[in-house]
Amino acid sequence: MTGDRRPVRHVVVMGVSGAGKTTVALGISERTGLRFAEADEFHPPANVARMRGGIPLDDEARWPWLRELAGWMTDRHAEGVSTVLACSALKRSYRDVLRQGPPDVEFVHLHGQAELIRDRLDRRAGHYMPASLLGSQRAILEHLEPDEPGVVLDIGLPPDELAAAAVARLGLPLRTGAGQH
């Protein structure tokens, strides 16, 4: 947009599989106009096959994927485009890789009860990530540290409220014509 002086922002909606990352990230994108990307779509076929087979990814499999995501955000930053990425970002070291891309990456950590997440995974259709991998994800999850910019939201709230809360708490500007839902 000509004359639009808004700073370029990059938000990563993080958490374990089934926390609602994609739904909330899409809600943030709808409200703000930030360009959405689903990190799962960046996984190479070998990673997808491993997860589909119930084998958790190790760090060796994650590093190239995380670097590609950081590169995607960096490329958008160079274009002056703000982004919102749905990505597990479970460990501090993974978030550090994402922060090596554009400046000032912020996080929205969707956190909640394991039972609620397991129920969501059991009901989810068409996704390669089986509910059996939830335990391995929860085991490596490292919560945001005080020096990591972001917010933690409880997934017990409806997705629309989570997206609105993320936008408000991060101070993201609303898209022109986007009201409260």
Rank of each mutant, 00 (worst) to 15 (best):
residue 22 T to Y: 12
residue 62 R to P: 03
residue 58 D to F: 00
residue 42 F to E: 07
residue 42 F to T: 06
residue 105 V to Y: 06
residue 75 D to T: 15
residue 33 G to Q: 05
residue 71 G to R: 14
residue 49 A to L: 11
residue 39 A to Q: 04
residue 57 L to F: 02
residue 106 E to F: 11
residue 67 R to H: 12
residue 49 A to H: 03
residue 114 A to K: 14
residue 56 P to S: 05
residue 97 V to K: 04
residue 37 A to M: 10
residue 38 E to R: 03
residue 46 A to T: 13
residue 41 E to I: 03
residue 30 E to M: 11
residue 66 L to I: 13
residue 76 R to S: 05
residue 17 S to A: 15
residue 69 L to M: 13
residue 71 G to S: 12
residue 68 E to M: 12
residue 31 R to S: 06
residue 43 H to L: 13
residue 69 L to E: 07
residue 42 F to S: 04
residue 86 A to T: 10
residue 25 A to K: 05
residue 107 F to C: 07
residue 19 A to F: 10
residue 88 S to I: 02
residue 24 V to T: 05
residue 83 T to M: 01
residue 77 H to A: 09
residue 96 D to G: 00
residue 32 T to P: 15
residue 40 D to R: 09
residue 110 L to G: 05
residue 77 H to T: 11
residue 56 P to I: 14
residue 80 G to T: 11
residue 49 A to G: 10
residue 113 Q to K: 15
residue 46 A to I: 11
residue 77 H to Q: 11
residue 89 A to F: 01
residue 31 R to H: 00
residue 112 G to Y: 05
residue 94 Y to M: 01
residue 27 G to A: 06
residue 57 L to K: 01
residue 16 V to D: 02
residue 61 A to L: 14
residue 18 G to H: 06
residue 56 P to F: 12
residue 47 N to I: 13
residue 60 E to D: 15
residue 82 S to Y: 03
residue 115 E to L: 11
residue 67 R to I: 08
residue 64 P to E: 13
residue 104 D to K: 10
residue 102 P to D: 03
residue 112 G to W: 03
residue 66 L to V: 12
residue 22 T to A: 14
residue 95 R to V: 08
residue 39 A to G: 15
residue 57 L to G: 01
residue 70 A to H: 09
residue 115 E to N: 06
residue 90 L to D: 00
residue 112 G to N: 07
residue 94 Y to A: 01
residue 18 G to T: 04
residue 99 R to K: 08
residue 37 A to Y: 04
residue 20 G to F: 12
residue 67 R to D: 13
residue 40 D to M: 12
residue 32 T to K: 06
residue 19 A to C: 15
residue 57 L to T: 03
residue 52 R to C: 04
residue 37 A to S: 07
residue 47 N to E: 09
residue 67 R to S: 13
residue 52 R to M: 01
residue 37 A to R: 00
residue 75 D to P: 04
